[in-house]
Amino acid sequence: MSISVQVLRLCAVAAVVAAVLGWVRGLPTLPQPAAASDAASCHAPYQDPVAGGDVQWISQAEARALVGDGKVAFVDCRAREQFESGHVSGSVHLELHGGQLPEGLVESLGAAATVIAYCDAEGGECQRSLEMAGLLRAAGLPDVRVLEGGLPAWLDRGYPAESGACHHCEATP
């Protein structure tokens, strides 16, 4: 029997088994990403009530140029599970708890000259990163930015991202 016939037979067997398995167990589902239109509307101007309008936006291209810069910290404001399934390379996961900054956060970010906060642009408002940025600004950090378009736009552009367990999350719950 020639190799091509063998390959075709094996593929046919695999296709039948996979079809039966998919029918019995159902296909796995992926978490739904935010819609592209939501990400685009993150460009809306924002007046932060806490920081008095001091929160600045940063464009995707500008932020991309700062990946790997030791003086810049990317802060992922989404849920921990979302962070672990994919985030900007080198970013840290920080989540607001009851609208408050986690303890010790400002000290740990104190060495960063610039902090770039981002979220998944849910609802088109980047609300979580704006809240985080406002509080960080109010806490005294000099340069806090919010990423235009959030993570969906970042991933659409193929900019550096990574996935994996959050190793620092236990230290700063």
């Binding site: 094996l10 695999a14 996979a18 796995p28 589902t29």
Partner: peptide, 30 residues
């Protein structure tokens, strides 16, 4: 989702076929 089912099945089929003399070369090509 389709490949998440299809790929592991193809891997298992390939693994089994590698052990069968009659289909080993096809399995090796896959």
């Amino acid at each position: 989702p389709v490949l998440a089912i299809g790929l592991p099945v193809l891997e298992v089929v390939t693994g089994l076929a590698l052990l069968l003399a009659s289909h080993a070369r096809g399995a090796a090509a896959l």
